[in-house]
Design a protein around this nucleic acid. Sequence first.
RNA 1: GGGCGUGUAGCUCAGCGGUAGAGCCCCUCGCUUACAACGAGGUGGUCGGGGGUUCGAUCCCCUCCGCGCCCA
Length: 873
Amino acid sequence: MTEIIEGQAPDPTSPADPSAGAVVVPDKPALEGLEATWAERWKADQTYAFDRTQPRENVYSIDTPPPTVSGSLHVGHVFSYTHTDLIARFQRMRGKSVFYPMGWDDNGLPTERRVQNYFGVRCDPSLPYDPDFTPPEKPDAKKQVPISRPNFIALCERLVEQDEEVFESLWRTLGLSVDWKQHYTTIGAKAQTVSQRAFLRNFARGEAYLQEAPTLWDVTFQTAVAQAELEAREYAGAYHRVAFHKPGGGVVHIETTRPELIPSVVALIAHPDDERYQDLFGTTVTSPVFGVEVPVLAHPLAEIDKGSGILMCCTFGDLTDVTWWRELDLPVRTVVGRDGRFTRETPPWLSSEAASTAYAELAGKTTFSSREAMVALLRESGDLDGEPKPTQRMANFFEKGDKPLEIVATRQWYIRNGGRSPELRSELLGEGAQITWLPGHMKHRFDNWVSGLNGDWLISRQRFFGIPFPVWYPLDAEGEPDYDHPLLPSEAELPVDPSTDAPRGYDESQRNQPGGFLGDPDVMDTWATSSLTPHIAGGWGEDDDLFERVFPMDLCTQAHDIIRTWLFSRVVRAHYENGQVPWSHAMLSGWILDPDRKKMSKSKGNVVVPTEILDKYGADAVRWRAALARPGLDSPFDETQMKVGRRLAMKVLNASKFVLGNVGGTSLDPVRVSAPVDCALLARLAGVVTRATEAMEAYDYSTALEVTEKFFWEFCDDYLELVKERAYAEDGGEPTESAKATLTIALEMQLRLLAPFLPFVTEEVWSWWRPGSIHRSSWPLATELGSAAAANPATVDAVATVLRGVRGAKSKAKVSMRARLSEVRVTGPQELLDRVELARADLIAVGKIDELVLVAGGDELQVDADLADTDAG
RNA sequence: GGGCGUGUAGCUCAGCGGUAGAGCCCCUCGCUUACAACGAGGUGGUCGGGGGUUCGAUCCCCUCCGCGCCCA
């Protein structure tokens, strides 16, 4: 008996060994329990271990999205991760050493909130690290204990570990062929070091910079928000028609949805072509209530046909205000603070008695309350024309927030992403063109996003749970920070946390002291970390030998909604760090929609929990359904489809039981295949192998499954039925041996074709008589079949047509398939009749036909049958 | 408003220049020694509407309509 060493594919072209060991076929094969059995075995055997001794050309490496561990997974995730696994398994069977790591995204807001609630703590970066800290025994969400950032991160890691176990178990049940030894997290020391090192290099090369500028600000989360995190939503508001006063008397009306910002007005603006305001351009007007003098200016972004055509620019009400501020060189007049409330102190430009009295009505209020107060003031002064008219306006929201974003001037870290540089934009578009997009049209989304960028990538967040910036600022004698000369660690010192570590040359006692230092309190945005997943997973800077074997990667897979974030940001970082794209292929999966074609989301309550569906139908069935969803196409979730996948898995078990158990097929030697119809079947199979292989090579897993599955059902329904009698014959000699060998060869090859899709059931059957794991065996080649497949596959069709005709006749006569037929007449062109003749004996036996007559005539095969008398009626 | 995609049997989807396909659903029959949580057979469509190119269009071009996503 031949032992096959793991990792070494059996050589199917060698003469089949009849001694391939005992065939053990269960009496009643079942799908239940296969996931548990094989997931455990694969883990123990390290079936999917990455062989890092292989050179780059023998490696296939994959960058797959690290799931947010504090979130929950739904069927959509299960589908798209399956798509990745189909490719991974195919490449592994093609002989590649597959680098398929799994990461956990435990960085960012969702985890932060979960830790706060779970442990009853909150992060206060100003506190020192307490090595002996233990969280409160009875967490009280209302009395959260303040702790240092390192303590907070330690708790996050503790919690995340539990989440990760649940996730890993789900992925193992689903059969993802991940190498679990390669796993990483986005908050761990490795990710911190990589993120900080990349940041230091970006800074050294001038790609990262610190700037005080108007920033989109979420008042709920108290943090800056990047362009990629915006979501435009309809927001109920009202147009207020408000009078500004001309110097010589008379008024000009503007319409605004945000009258509360009148105290911060810096100009009125109309379109340069707007006839109505030509006389006003270059003059000044005074604001109602506050009496502040502002210029009337012209700018093409003002829309002539919207409202009165003229509007007020406040710094800052929206992003257009930022453009005007920049392009028209306007002053900054900030009234809304970071907490979303109007500043308590009266701003200097409102120093007149009337203005400061009026402002007192707004100070300290939320934008909502101050709007009411402002409207009252306008009514009082008579500057509100008519009543506010309700409207829906589009406002920018943080995708996780529920209040419209404000714009405040803050100091933030940015990475240049082309938003302010046409040259860089075109370089990045050029990088996008290097990637093979699957499907191709997804490139447009990338191009559109890059072309539409209007500012650099804001990477700092005023949060706690994230990767800190490795930066301190020296404090001068007055205790004022010098932001122009940040203190940086060396790469060897990484990772650092400036909230607890002191910069080189200082000690902890100098923290926040005049002449001392100040740690940068901010953390990196979660995308700033995950933009480096190929580097984190690939050991960049720590294990360069590994990195060179896996980078640039072959494939990135993800859903299409994060092209603008995750995909784009990785292109930016690899462009800077490696001067190339991070992967050659990007495969975008669609979404799973609920039956009403709405995207599944937790808030809608239409999420299908993956564990339920896996329990109910089995992993192979769920994977089968996932494989039907082609790259980039959304597909509605339909449970009835899972049943079809389950039936296929069941059929694999039963057909295998027939071939290996009942018929007792063992030989894989194509030389034993002699009957013409058997050769034709193998010829057809050779064609299937070729087409399935081409499809898989083109990442078209759906087509590969389709052609394989179609053949499999025909194999079961037609061929297997046709040769049943011959295969069962006890002293059938060569014809029987031919049938048995054909059945066995075809089954074995089909198992390998199906292995990426149905890893559990194919492995189960493989284990009945083949050594090793099917997942380390080789992807089939048409040439394995040799001359046995050198026949015309059309014979299979001709014979199957007759077989179906015979069945149809019996079905029409409403008799059992076992009923005898006294005579069957087949008419058709001679060429086809010759093919039917090749399987005469099989047809007679399986159809229980007394006499089979072939009559030339007509263009296609027609079958007529007479029932034998005994069975008629 | 701009961009991308999509509209084929009741449902989910293939096909993309040469007489409409699959699975599910539905109907009928059948327990035949792989499979009754099964098998066999069958019904079902003016390929979104309208123009055009072509000997011929579901497929190519134009236009309109519906739906989805991305960006304004």
